[in-house]
Structures are given as C-alpha cells and as structure tokens.
Amino acid sequence: MTSGKRPARRFVYCVVAACAVTQSLSCFARDLNQDEVLELRRKGVILPLEQFIDQALGRYPGSKLLEAELEEKHGALVYEIELLTADHVVRELKFDAGDSHLLQDKEDD
C-alpha cells in the first residue's frame, strides 16, 4: 500500500515544481498586448515597430519577416524580430524599443 502512494506523491511534487518554475519564468519576459503597445507608442516611450523591422531586414537583405513582438524583460522593453534569411537560416534580433540599439543578433534554434 505504501509503494502505491509513492508514484502519486512523486507526481504531485513534479507538478508543484513545474508550476514554480513556470511562475518564476514569467517574471523574466512578458508579452505586451496591443493596447499597452499603442499607449507606450503614443507616449513616446517606444519607437515604431516598422523602424525595427526595416533595421533587421537591412542587416539581412533578401530575408523574410517571420515574427515581431514587443516584450518586457527585466523591466526593459525589447522588440524581438525573427527573420528567415536568404540562406534559409532563422535569425532572432533583439532591439531596445526605446532607442533602437541592437541588443542581440543570433541564429535561432
């Protein structure tokens, strides 16, 4: 009877641990909804998304836009632009949404 409870208890511990990790990861990055983005743009806190898309496509001529999103990471607003290059490589570029500074340019897995 005791051995039958062990797998159930182990399962509960795994679920609790998974929830704890998920909760802590949500603190690192948060997608902003369109109303939040429009308000930030109206207030001049962030620059227009089109500017970042143009900048990313300019780095990789012939590439195609796959995804663009604005996230809040550790209190900073970051545009993430994902491209498919002419060489069929997926690249992820991250920009500071307030000053257009390129933060990261890496091949995406």
Rank of each mutant, 00 (worst) to 15 (best):
M1F: 07
G4F: 04
K5D: 13
R6K: 11
P7K: 10
R10T: 12
V15T: 11
V15W: 02
V15Y: 02
A18S: 13
A18G: 09
C19S: 09
V21D: 02
Q23Y: 14
L25S: 09
F28S: 06
F28Y: 10
R30A: 09
N33P: 00
Q34K: 07
D35E: 14
E36Y: 03
E36D: 09
L38M: 10
E39A: 13
L40H: 10
R42H: 13
R42E: 15
G44T: 04
I46D: 05
I46E: 07
E50L: 10
E50P: 01
F52K: 01
I53P: 00
I53A: 04
Q55H: 08
A56P: 06
L57S: 03
R59S: 10
Y60D: 11
K64F: 00
L65W: 04
L66K: 10
A68V: 14
E69I: 02
E69K: 14
L70W: 01
L70M: 01
L70E: 00
E71Q: 11
H74N: 15
V78W: 06
Y79C: 02
I81F: 04
E82S: 07
E82K: 13
L83N: 05
L84N: 07
L84D: 02
H88V: 12
V90S: 08
V90L: 05
L93D: 03
F95A: 01
F95I: 04
A97C: 09
A97I: 08
D99K: 14
H101R: 15
L102W: 05
L102K: 03
Q104V: 04
Q104W: 00
K106G: 00
K106I: 07
E107A: 09
